[in-house]
Lab assay of single mutants.
Amino acid sequence: SADYSSLTVVQLKDLLTKRNLSVGGLKNELVQRLIKDDEESKGE
């Protein structure tokens, strides 16, 4: 998976916004949300 932890919070929020995901929470939560979304989209 992508190394989201190396991105800035601003970059993470931009990715979340593009996916229509919540941008609330700490950086670690944003990273986990993106990883979870990646895993769910692979399952389709």
Rank of each mutant, 00 (worst) to 15 (best):
S1A: 14
S1E: 11
S1Y: 14
S1K: 13
S1C: 09
S1M: 13
A2V: 15
A2G: 10
A2L: 14
A2W: 12
A2F: 15
D3K: 13
D3R: 11
D3E: 09
D3W: 15
D3G: 10
D3I: 10
D3L: 11
D3H: 12
D3S: 09
Y4S: 00
Y4N: 00
Y4I: 01
Y4D: 00
Y4L: 03
S5M: 14
S5I: 08
S5W: 15
S6E: 09
S6Q: 12
S6Y: 08
S6C: 08
S6H: 11
S6L: 12
S6K: 14
S6D: 09
S6R: 12
S6V: 09
L7M: 14
L7E: 01
L7T: 00
L7K: 04
L7N: 02
L7P: 00
L7W: 10
T8S: 11
T8F: 03
T8Q: 04
T8N: 07
T8I: 02
T8M: 04
T8G: 05
T8K: 05
V9H: 06
V9P: 05
V9Q: 05
V9I: 14
V9G: 03
V9A: 05
V9R: 05
V9K: 06
V9W: 06
V9M: 12
V10Q: 15
V10I: 12
V10K: 15
V10P: 13
V10H: 13
V10L: 13
Q11C: 06
Q11S: 05
Q11H: 05
Q11N: 04
L12Q: 00
L12R: 00
L12H: 00
L12P: 00
K13Y: 06
K13M: 11
K13A: 05
K13Q: 11
K13F: 05
K13D: 02
K13R: 15
D14N: 10
D14V: 13
D14I: 14
D14G: 08
D14A: 14
D14F: 13
D14Q: 12
L15T: 03
L15K: 04
L15I: 09
L15S: 02
L15Y: 05
L15P: 00
L16T: 01
L16Y: 00
L16S: 02
L16E: 00
L16D: 01
L16A: 04
L16K: 00
L16I: 03
L16H: 01
T17P: 01
T17F: 11
T17N: 10
T17A: 15
T17I: 12
T17R: 15
T17G: 08
K18T: 07
K18L: 10
K18I: 09
K18Y: 07
K18E: 09
K18F: 08
K18A: 10
R19F: 03
R19N: 03
R19G: 02
N20F: 07
N20M: 07
N20E: 06
L21W: 01
L21Q: 04
L21I: 04
L21G: 01
L21Y: 01
S22T: 07
S22M: 07
S22K: 09
S22E: 09
V23G: 06
V23S: 09
V23A: 09
V23H: 07
G24N: 15
G24Q: 15
G24R: 15
G24Y: 14
G24V: 15
G24H: 15
G24A: 15
G25C: 02
G25Q: 02
G25N: 02
G25P: 02
L26V: 10
L26E: 15
L26S: 15
L26K: 14
K27G: 03
K27E: 05
K27H: 08
K27I: 07
K27N: 03
N28G: 10
N28Y: 13
N28R: 08
N28L: 09
N28I: 10
N28C: 10
N28S: 12
N28E: 15
N28T: 10
E29S: 06
E29L: 04
E29V: 06
E29T: 06
E29M: 06
E29C: 06
E29A: 07
E29I: 06
E29Y: 02
L30Q: 03
L30S: 00
L30K: 01
L30R: 00
L30N: 00
L30W: 06
V31P: 02
V31Q: 04
V31R: 04
V31I: 15
V31A: 04
V31E: 05
Q32S: 08
Q32W: 08
Q32C: 10
Q32V: 07
Q32M: 11
Q32R: 08
Q32P: 01
Q32T: 08
R33T: 04
R33A: 06
R33H: 03
R33L: 05
R33G: 02
R33P: 03
R33Q: 03
R33D: 02
L34H: 01
L34S: 00
L34E: 02
L34W: 00
L34C: 02
L34G: 00
L34Q: 00
L34R: 00
I35V: 10
I35H: 07
I35A: 06
I35W: 06
I35C: 07
I35L: 12
K36R: 11
K36A: 11
K36D: 14
K36F: 07
K36L: 09
K36C: 09
K36I: 08
K36V: 07
K36Q: 12
K36S: 08
K36G: 06
D37T: 04
D37K: 05
D37Q: 06
D37Y: 14
D37N: 11
D37S: 11
D37P: 01
D38Y: 04
D38C: 05
D38I: 05
D38R: 04
D38E: 05
D38W: 04
E39Q: 12
E39L: 14
E39Y: 10
E39T: 08
E39K: 10
E39P: 03
E40D: 12
E40N: 12
E40P: 06
E40R: 14
E40C: 11
E40S: 12
S41P: 08
S41L: 10
S41E: 08
S41V: 08
S41R: 15
S41A: 12
K42L: 11
K42Y: 10
K42W: 09
K42I: 09
K42R: 13
K42T: 09
G43Y: 12
G43W: 11
G43M: 13
G43P: 11
G43F: 12
G43H: 13
G43C: 10
E44F: 14
E44H: 14
E44Q: 14
